[in-house]
Design a protein around this nucleic acid. Structure first.
Lengths: 237, 237
DNA sequence: TCCTAAACAAGAACACTGTTCATGTCAAGT
DNA sequence: ACTTGACATGAACAGTGTTCTTGTTTAGGA
């Protein structure tokens, strides 16, 4: 209470700097050689520290990796939000506005393949705390959903009604999405939205993880075409 | 040439048995604790062998992992083919026939999450030889494409023509798929097929890697609904 | 002002890991 | 009968994550 805040921050400031520096080096190693090759000792070496010293800042290798995962989530969310924010002014059609966010996400992934893998690839053994990741995850979803709700609000949404009756199981299955994004629309449309998300993640993962070999010669062209198709499926035009 | 084949196989047979046994134990460890935790020494322990003995059969840990990857590819391809083979007799509609293969692939993945991760997750540092994986990969694609080409041949394919002109970039981008599967159809339809593949991989990965938390409460219902929608997009009914 | 308690950093140690090498052993083929 | 090759071993090396004990510095209260 009575502790002078400057003195206390003097300690904490250097601590924060240190943790940031550690995280930075770790991020470099991750970007260069991947998560599997991330070595606590090697980042300690680069920082000219004893390996044991890092345990003051991170509980161990798993904790360090978890921090990197969280940072990746944050970075991706920020990028998606930024794209969604400037899309309305940059484009005329709802379709083009929507695609701007998928584009940004793909670009983000291509520039940081290992961090993409950290989020959407094989889960690391020292699991990620789902509690912390749900927030940035929701931000990405919100960024992706914004153009849709805006078009809907403006009465510019013209979905081609999917066949079949809205089965009750499906309604319950996608309930969290409908509520979380406040998507006031038919269940099938909410399902289409999640489907779009799956398609987006699938396309990017297949490209980033090297599965387009002998399949897709021009990933960007295919991505563009697919996203336009998906946007049309969402009712955007 | 003059070597008696029985004697020669006597040697080779025990060798094959040994490699199969090693691979089996490795597969168990993989299924139990994941690829990251796969330890050469621990499988040697379980086989009551010296760690160095394994080097007679596999060039090292990476080679062992590569063998597991190849085995996973083979297994997945076999499963997909099996499903595609018995689908025609089991169902009436083209849509239901097509979905049988995605269903089988999902089931395969859910039963072997780590092997799914080996194929579609973060690539392992000791890379996979793409030359060997292209063949089973094509088999999966063929299994997934068969109902479509059959429906097309029977004149039962009624795609809702996608908007926009078939851009030339897209045509070149998806050319290998069109040729490899002998899909004699508009470029957009070939693109739709690859898009279906991406959606399938995306949905399964998101489920298997645990991303449906707080998003999709009933993965199976959502999967079924989505695949029906995708089938409709492919022109199947 | 001094002193105590906490935070920091280092070093040694332990139990692992993958990989290599020299050695021994055994069953084939000439 | 002998030699060659495949097989299996054990020891060793360089890594790794993690823990514990030892010092050192620094901040906050007496």
């Amino acid at each position: 209470m009575a502790t002078p805040r400057t003195a206390r921050t003097a300690r904490e400031r250097v601590r924060e700097e240190m943790t940031a520096e550690i995280l930075g080096v770790a991020r470099e190693h991750l970007a260069r050689e991947g998560a599997a090759a991330l070595s606590l000792r090697s980042v300690a070496r680069e920082l000219e520290l004893a390996p044991s010293a890092l345990y003051r800042y991170f509980d161990g290798r798993d904790a360090l990796l978890s921090a990197l995962i969280m940072a990746a989530y944050e970075s991706l969310a920020a990028e998606a939000e930024l794209a969604a924010e400037r899309a309305p002014q940059a484009h005329e059609t709802d379709s083009e506005r929507w695609i701007e966010t998928p584009r940004a996400i793909r670009q983000w992934a291509l520039q940081r393949p290992h961090e993409w893998g950290l989020i959407f690839g094989t889960p690391v053994p020292g699991y990620e705390a789902p509690a912390d990741t749900v927030e940035p995850y929701a931000r990405v979803a919100a960024a992706l959903g914004r153009p849709v709700v805006e078009a809907k609000a403006a009465g510019r949404l013209h979905p081609d009604a999917p066949s079949g009756a809205p089965r009750d199981e499906l309604r319950q299955a996608v309930a969290p999405v409908a509520e979380g994004l406040e998507l006031d629309m038919p269940v099938q449309m909410v399902a289409r939205f999640v489907q779009a998300w799956a398609t987006l993640v699938g396309i990017i993962s297949l490209e980033v993880f090297g599965h387009w070999r002998n399949t897709i010669l021009d990933p960007e062209a295919f991505f563009e075409a697919t996203m336009h198709d998906v946007a049309r499926g969402l009712g955007l035009s």
